[in-house]
Amino acid sequence: MNGFWAVFKRELKGYFATPLAYVFLVIFLFFAGFLTFRQRFFEMRQADLRLFFGVLPLLLAIMSAATAMRLWAEERRTGSVELLFTLPITVTQAVLGKFVAAWCFLGIALLLTFPLPVTVAYLGNPDGGVIASGYAASFLLSGGFLAIGLFFSAVSKHQVISGVLTGVACAILYFIGMPTVVNYLSTILPAGAVTTIESFSFQNHYESLLRGVIEVKDLLYFLILIAGWVWACTVILDERKAS
């Protein structure tokens, strides 16, 4: 566990040691506000954050890809991976340490959007439970994107390649549940296969959590997805760390 804490502490501190993290945070917060208000947030005259949670997936995907792409790619490019894995730290501890630190960073980004719920609560009487479950859903979604990004950052030594691969993978997993995609797939695949593919999609599970109903199957979906990608990352890193 020692290795985990050492890596976690170093990583989380590392985010705030460079201006990069602050730039990311500012851009994220700006667009989170901008995209929400552009959709006539006030004109809707509804005290909820539906619009805000609607724009979050895209922002979180970009933010997670940007955060995750350097995690292992940079470590391998600069050779510091050799330092890390000659300390008494296992691959699993290091991967989890990095993942949890990055997830905390995204959690901080999400928490910093607090002015929006505060505004809504000031102007009207929103359903606190729905907002809380919306935040939980966004946090889980960011964890999912991040786990995918972590895996691809271990695949390539080049940050940009990792970032692009992550973007593509996240987009596929998110949009595969869209009605247009599902309609198209049902013309070429049997119904059972389409339902299965649809259930892999981020979108359905995210939106079902947004409605304020926390179902075990949605939670399990995110947890299994995160665990799976993180595990895959440890496997590929173990194999490639030295190449």
């Binding site: 020692n2 290795g3 804490w5 050492a6 890596v7 502490k9 170093r10 501190k13 590392g14 040691a17 460079t18 600069t78 050779g79 510091s80 991976v81 050799e82 330092l83 000659t86 300390l87 008494p88 730290i89």
Partner: peptide, 22 residues
């Protein structure tokens, strides 16, 4: 290691403390 890998963005103190942590 041959190329003396270290974390560039850290201070020397921070780096040595990280190794102590680990």
């Amino acid at each position: 290691a041959e190329n003396a890998p270290a974390y560039n963005e850290m201070t020397v103190a921070g780096f040595l403390n990280f190794v102590c942590d680990a």
